[in-house]
Each structure stands twice: as C-alpha cells, then as structure tokens.
C-alpha cells in the first residue's frame, strides 16, 4: 500500500504515537458524542471500519464527501468529520450523484440504511448502478426500519417478526448484492459487523474503485430486530454471526439470500471494470463536439 496522503497523516496520526486520544477521534465529530445508537447496536462498528479504511486508503479526505439519508444509520454522516450531508429519506444517492457530477474531483461515500437505500431509495440505487455513477455505497442492513420502531423492511427475512408483522413476515426479502450486481455495480461485498477487519479491507478496496461500489454490512439491531424476535441483544447476534457466517469470495450473487436465522454468506462477490458515468459522458461529449466541428 502506498503512503497515505499528507492530509490523512495530519488528521489521523499513527495510533502508537498518540496517548490519551482515541486514534479515530480525528475523523469523528467528538463534540456530538455520545452518538444516539443503542447499546450493542452494530452501526458504530460500521463506522469504525470506515474510519480505519480511510486511514488505509490513499485518499485525500479534504476531497471527500459523505452523504446519508434518514434512519439510525442516516446519522453516520453527522458523526464523521468529512464534508457531510444529511439528506431526505431515500435520497442520499441522488444527492451524491449531484455532488459527483457537479464536482468530479470529490469522492462520494453514501452511508445509509437498508430501508433508506433499498426501500424508498430503491430506484436511485438501481439507476445509479446502471449508470455506474462513481460512488461507494455502504449499506447497513439490520433487517428492519429501526429508527421508526422496527417495521418490516424489504430486507426482513421471511417469517421474522417485526412490529408490523405480528404473525411473521410474509414477503420474500431482497438480496442486496444480487440487485447491485444485476444492475451493474463494479464492486459488491457483504460482511457482518463481526468481520471488522475484512470489512475494513473491503471498504479500502472499494474506495479505490472507479464506479458504483456497494458494501453491505449486516448489523445487529438489539433494540428492534433481535429483541422482538427473542434472539437476545446485539452481542447474541454477534455470536450468531460467528457461528453462522460462511465466507465465499466470488460466490454467484444469486445464492446470497438471507433467511430467518439461516446461514449468511459473506465475501467479495463482484470486482470488475465498466466505464463510469463521467467517463462515458466526457467521451461522448468530445465525440459529438468533434463530429460537429466544435471540439
């Protein structure tokens, strides 16, 4: 790995060289802590992996923007010390597209929940993948709409209880990596919050990609998902991940469905090259201008 840029070194010095200051503090808005997430919630772990990945990847954090929608995960942008946007529900990808197109020098990270990105924001998600907009989407999947009280989401496993499915969920859930893959994403991975190191590596890798990259993070919601399903708290969910995750890098994304308390397949599934939206746009523009003699 190349040396991190000066900006990162300045704001995130070598942890072994500091004392008394948490090494991630320089990338967080500590004045806003403690954060709102419940005890044993996994969203904080997705944030630690993200901040660790920022220090590993060779990226100038001054040229980076983080965009979140609404939800528990939607709070992430407000806690990370980058140019942050807390946008309307379901629209972070649309805002991120705007940022990227208006200022192609900015690296955009969309950090939001499954409900925000795949339910109300589902169309933005598939079309950004189709257009191959250059952004990294980190989708924290806790299987429900947590912030509003644990309603059924399009990711709730069949038969799982939620506050709006007192007899168990009857709708088959979306398989997020499969949607991302079929719609054209160039990088697709899934990890749980227990796999922080692999998650960090995936985010680091995805940050270097040009194009639409998706990292799904399966996360415990001790307050709504596991409590309502009588599965214990987030620590019990972490133990569940420990015993039931199977790592299969390169697995066909068709096979990644998640059932209620069944095996979860994690890994890096897609890593390919496709011209990004801006590359296509610039090339097309120069061709058209050339043909018209305006070039």
């Amino acid at each position: 790995m190349e040396e991190p840029t000066k900006a990162i070194k300045e704001i995130h010095p070598d942890p072994s060289a500091t004392s008394g200051v948490h090494p991630m503090e320089n990338l967080l808005r500590m004045e806003r802590m403690p954060h709102i997430w419940c005890p044993t919630c996994g969203i904080g772990l997705a944030v630690t992996a993200f901040t660790a990945a920022l220090t590993k990847a060779n990226i100038d954090t001054n040229k980076m923007s983080i965009v979140s929608g609404i939800g528990c995960t939607g709070r992430v942008a407000g806690y990370v010390k980058l140019d942050s946007f807390h946008t309307t529900h379901g629209r972070p990808i649309a805002f991120g597209t705007g940022i990227r197109v208006a200022n192609p020098g900015i690296k955009v990270v969309v950090f939001s929940g499954d409900g925000d990105l795949i339910a109300i924001g589902g169309n933005h998600f598939i079309h950004a993948a189709r257009r191959n907009i250059d952004m990294l989407v980190i989708c924290v999947n806790n299987f429900i709409y947590a912030m509003t009280g644990g309603q059924v989401a399009p990711t709730t496993p069949l038969a799982a209880y939620a506050t709006t499915s007192p007899y168990g969920c009857v709708e088959p859930p979306f398989n997020i990596p499969y949607i991302a893959d079929s719609a054209g994403a160039v990088y697709v991975a899934r990890w749980t919050t227990l796999h922080v190191r692999r998650l960090t590596n995936s985010i680091t890798e995805a940050l270097q990609k040009t194009g639409f990259s998706v990292v799904e993070v399966i996360s415990p919601c001790g307050m709504y998902y596991s409590r309502i399903n009588r599965l214990g708290d987030g620590l019990d969910m972490m133990r569940f991940y420990h015993d039931n995750v199977e790592i299969r890098n390169g697995e066909d994304t068709k096979n990644l469905d998640i059932g209620f308390q069944t095996k979860i397949i994690c890994g890096k599934f897609v890593d390919r090259e496709r011209p990004s939206y801006m590359e296509r746009y610039n090339q097309w523009l120069s061709e058209v201008k050339g043909a018209r003699g305006e070039g």
Partner: peptide
C-alpha cells in the same frame, strides 16, 4: 481488536 470492535470509540490500544 477491541479498538475495532467498540461501537462507542471508548477503547484503544497503544
């Protein structure tokens, strides 16, 4: 590992 697994940024190692 504890540093990476703490959701509260409450523990770190040197």
């Amino acid at each position: 590992l504890c540093e990476m697994l703490c959701p509260e940024f409450a523990i770190f190692v040197t």
